[in-house]
């Protein structure tokens, strides 16, 4: 007779498989509900000329384009700088600096990206009120999470695995690339996702230092002093950030599924 007591856990596991990704639905639902609410509100109002002009799709799309470009560049440079640095810091010899960096990286969250951005714009050329400063500021503001997660991800790899790899005759470099890094990827991805979201958010402030982006939409709305434009602008920016985070979350989930 088959062991019937075994049945329920199997069923339960299959259900858990579906449910464990159900949370991915939450962000699209929030965005849709929020978007619908704003759209409903706007549609009940009659827009005057100024409001219509402020909300012209072409202007919004151009801001959006700038925003995405700023975000993409800065995230790219964050990864290019922070990952190798994190690998270096994770090596045995860098213990002292590593501990300092890890200790500082938490506290540094209190440093406002807004101030950092303005400070960099105030620096002499090639800095100044230009996109280059903006990207430098975004990179500075988002560097630490990636650095931290790279170090932590590499350090949490089971030492026994590293020892086993070395024991089989793998070189230190081969061990790093074929054992340590693949195992650290999920944690590193989480850090990159944080950086990406930070960059989307900080890029909103780029407009104050000559960088454009969706912040311009908000500033225009603010100067118009039209609540309807302001709320629409805020909602668009919020929706963008949520969707970027969501996409990054999906990517993270895919990477995790592949590595574990």
């Amino acid at each position: 007779m088959p062991d019937l007591t075994r049945l329920p856990p199997v069923v339960a596991r299959r259900r858990a498989g579906v449910r464990s990704h159900a949370d991915l639905l939450s962000t699209p639902i929030i965005v849709l509900l929020g978007g619908a609410a704003v759209a409903l509100w706007v549609s009940t109002r009659k827009l005057d000329d100024i409001e219509t002009r402020a909300l012209q799709p072409s202007a919004i799309l151009s801001d959006l384009g700038q925003h995405l470009i700023l975000t993409a560049y800065s995230t790219f440079f964050v990864i290019v700088i922070a990952v190798p640095l994190g690998i270096l810091l994770s090596r045995q010899g860098a213990r002292r600096i590593r501990n300092v960096v890890l200790a500082v990286s938490g506290f540094a969250q209190a440093l406002p990206p807004y101030g950092v951005l303005v400070l960099i714009a105030f620096a002499p050329a090639p800095f100044g009120f230009n996109p280059f400063s903006v990207i430098a500021g975004l990179v500075a503001a988002a560097l630490l999470p990636v650095l931290r997660n790279t170090v932590v991800g590499l350090r949490q790899v089971d030492p026994a695995l590293i020892e086993a790899a070395r024991g089989m005759g793998m070189s230190a470099r081969a061990t790093l690339f074929r054992v340590e890094l693949p195992l650290a990827v999920p944690v590193m991805m989480a850090g990159i996702r944080v950086a990406l979201v930070l960059n989307v958010g900080t890029a909103v402030l780029a407009t104050f230092v000559g960088g454009g982006g969706l912040g311009s939409l908000i500033v225009r709305a603010q100067t118009l002093n039209r609540p309807i434009v302001l709320v629409t602008a805020g909602a668009i920016v919020a929706a963008l950030a949520l969707m970027v985070d969501w996409l990054a979350g999906v990517a993270e989930r895919l990477v995790r599924a592949r590595t574990s």
């Binding site: 939450s26 709305a221 920016v237 950030a241 949520l242």
Partner: peptide, 25 residues
Amino acid sequence: RDGALLVTAAALTVPSLALLVLLLP
């Protein structure tokens, strides 16, 4: 509880200036 965690986590990703102007009205 899980739903509240998802919603508050999502709130944290909203850029601060966007949230501020949404609260202005």
